[in-house]
């Protein structure tokens, strides 16, 4: 049994907070058997972080079009698993970024690495002119 929620937001950093808060409230709907409260807190926070990173990336690379950019979030809620997909119309990219070399004090380039690290499964596909990045994690 799964439910699906779709949400389209303007591609503007102001809406990052909306994306985050929606994600945390959706993530808190999931329940896991034999899971402790701190597992659930962690689960919610991991999604909050991953969506913040993905949304920020979408917005950052959205400047190349004339039409106002949008980002569409799709939440697929199962009993113990949540999958969040982000669709945007930006140029294609790769999710296989290497780990940041922290010793050289990098200021950027952590985003996709963090997403891959906190999620169970991250996939990227290109459909027509759209990027779709899907992130899922089981509680």
């Amino acid at each position: 049994m799964s439910s699906i929620i779709t949400l389209t937001l303007p591609g503007d950093p102001l809406f990052t907070e909306v994306a985050r808060q929606t994600t945390t409230s959706v993530a808190s709907l999931l329940t896991g058997e034999n899971r402790s409260a701190s597992d659930e807190t962690q689960f919610i926070h991991d999604f909050e972080l991953a969506i913040s990173e993905a949304f920020t990336n979408s917005v950052k690379y959205a400047g190349e079009h004339d039409t106002p950019p949008t980002v569409t979030l799709t939440f697929e809620i199962e009993k113990r698993r949540l999958t969040v997909s982000l669709l945007d119309a930006n140029s294609p990219f790769s999710i296989d970024t290497p780990a940041p070399d922290i010793e050289s004090y990098p200021e950027n380039g952590y985003g996709l690495w963090i997403i891959r690290k906190v999620m169970d499964c991250v996939t990227y596909r290109r459909e027509g002119n759209s990027n779709i990045i899907s992130m899922s994690k089981t509680l």
Partner: peptide, 16 residues
Amino acid sequence: DFMDSSGLGAIVGAAR
């Protein structure tokens, strides 16, 4: 109450 990699990058960049 929340920090993502942009925030982290700002702290790391300032330290550098």
